[in-house]
Amino acid sequence: MSSFTQYLFAGLSNGAIYALIAIGWVLIFNVSGVLNLAQGELLMVGGLTFAWLAAETDMPVIAGIVLAIGASVGVAVVLDVVAVRRVKSPEVVPVILVTLGASFVLRELGRIVFGADALRHGYLIDGDPIMIFGAALLPQAVLTWVIVGVVVGLLALFFRRTVFGKAMVACSDDPVGAQASGISPSRMRTIAFGISGALAGLGGVLIISLTSLSWDGGTMIGLKGFIAAVFGGLGRYEGAVAGGLALGMLEAFGAGYVSSAYKDVFSLGLLVVLLLLRPQGLLGGRVVTT
């Protein structure tokens, strides 16, 4: 029982972070039909900026978090304005390739700026583990769940209650109708990149507070966010959250009961199986085509 609970806690913590990244994928995809392949690198920028600031300055933790998230938002917005917006082709594939190119550039810049070694920030919250069914629950894990829960709730409010949030939904429902109504889809896409960058930056802060992260470490986490988004049904926010949590648990239980050496094999294998058997995801969403 204690092992099961321990794996459950680990799965929920990683899954919550995957959910954040998955929402970022879904948001950009919904608003613009584009898959941002640099999503993981945005996470890397946020995480490493946070750890670097903590190591190199006396800045308060909160200020470091804000600056780290701001760095990811800045990079995401620049990526959209400088690269994505300039693609004149109406096709989606050239835009996706631009984001792939950006991911290579960001990785290399990450290595140059933050160095080749992995960085780590300590837990954001200290304290003794809480023992539940013989398993240790770290206060940091609880903090991660609370932060992700609050962010998901705020996002739901943003889409349901604010005109800007609804305008983004409108761009996803019908871009032609949105533009005819005075909504600029390109401006909405920039906002989507910004929010997505903020989610990735926060994900980076949470990851690097749990484990170490290096300049090339964002790629796999970004990919897992994509798998979570596809798992839940690409295009559905609630699916992204469910997909993230499910993927986190699949990995944790797989690593615990089979072998941690196969942790990535479980998630990547899940992507292959999903694309072959149920490309619309578990909850039913859009199928990615070119």
């Binding site: 939904v169 409108a170 429902d173 019908d174």
Partner: peptide, 8 residues
């Protein structure tokens, strides 16, 4: 085709 925002 009206182009309404169907989910809203």
């Amino acid at each position: 085709g009206r182009r309404l925002f169907n989910s809203l």
